[in-house]
Simulated scan of single mutants.
Amino acid sequence: MQNLRAPGISHRACTLLAVRWMVMVASVMLSAMALAELPDEDAEGWSLRKETDNIQVFTIDQPDSSFQAFKAEAVLDVPIENVMAVMVNPQSCVEWVHNCSESYAFGDGDFHDRYAYSVNNMPWPVTDRDYVIRIRTRGNPHDGEVVMELNAIPDERNKESDYIRVDKSDTLYRFIPEGDQTRMIWVQHTDPNGSIPGWLVNTLLVDIPVRSMKQLERVAGWERYQNHELVYDQEGRLKDVVPKTQTGDD
């Protein structure tokens, strides 16, 4: 067999390179598998469970899980810049997500790929759950759409004794500008871990996005989230959400 090793590179070096390549490929495959957990927005089987004001909530069974996924869609009466100013704040979970009691960023990360820790209050006597989440954000300057993918990575931080760590949770947010309003599509599937009956979670499932989306609309109208803009780099990638530059009168 022909030796494909380049001149001057030892067998050990080649082995290390091969191992690194396999690790990289495995990482990409695992990432794709994590995202594949969510059902497609247009998949057959979605069932309309609730429609109130401008919010629709659908659910669908998930294979190998007793917990359903949900899809919620609403038109928020606030511009996308306001909404994204909320979403990039690592502590905003407590402001708008129903039952979120603690949230903050941790570790090394940037706008496109970062990490957050949060705690979700559960009704007594159920133990509260905590989440370790990887958040990836991308935007399209042509149509203004912003997509956020949130995936549980439970082993990224040590477990807390007071909580049960959620080890499987996948979320997709899509924000689409419609003039001074924002269409939000939220798809999520979470296995809360521990001894919670699936039928109980599925019964309460629709209330989470309804309450949260209504609150997000309110929060995005707060003063501190006004007058922001989406910033793109030269390649057209969304790179930040920042306050608009304050300029004086001419």
Rank of each mutant, 00 (worst) to 15 (best):
D170Q: 15
Q91A: 00
G221H: 06
N193Q: 09
T127N: 02
E160P: 00
L4R: 07
N3G: 07
N193W: 04
V206P: 10
W222T: 03
P123H: 09
L150K: 03
Q246A: 04
E51Q: 10
D42R: 15
G139D: 13
L4Q: 07
D77K: 13
V210F: 14
S10E: 08
V187R: 03
E37C: 00
C14R: 12
F111E: 02
M1F: 05
E149M: 12
Y131D: 05
C93Y: 13
S101V: 14
D155L: 01
D53P: 03
V86M: 08
L4T: 06
D77C: 05
G221A: 07
P243V: 12
E235K: 08
D143T: 09
A34Y: 11
N89V: 05
Y225R: 06
S103L: 03
T127G: 04
L150E: 14
A152G: 04
L205S: 07
P123F: 13
P63F: 11
P7E: 15
H11T: 02
R165D: 08
D61Y: 09
G139L: 04
D110S: 08
E160I: 04
V25F: 12
W124P: 01
D77G: 02
Q68Y: 10
R5A: 13
D113S: 03
V25W: 14
R174L: 05
I9G: 09
Q2G: 07
N120A: 13
D143I: 03
H189M: 00
G109V: 06
N121L: 13
Q246L: 13
H228V: 12
T182W: 08
N54A: 07
D250Q: 01
A74V: 02
G8I: 08
L48G: 11
M24E: 15
W96Y: 06
F111L: 03
M213F: 07
T127Y: 00
A116H: 04
A6E: 15
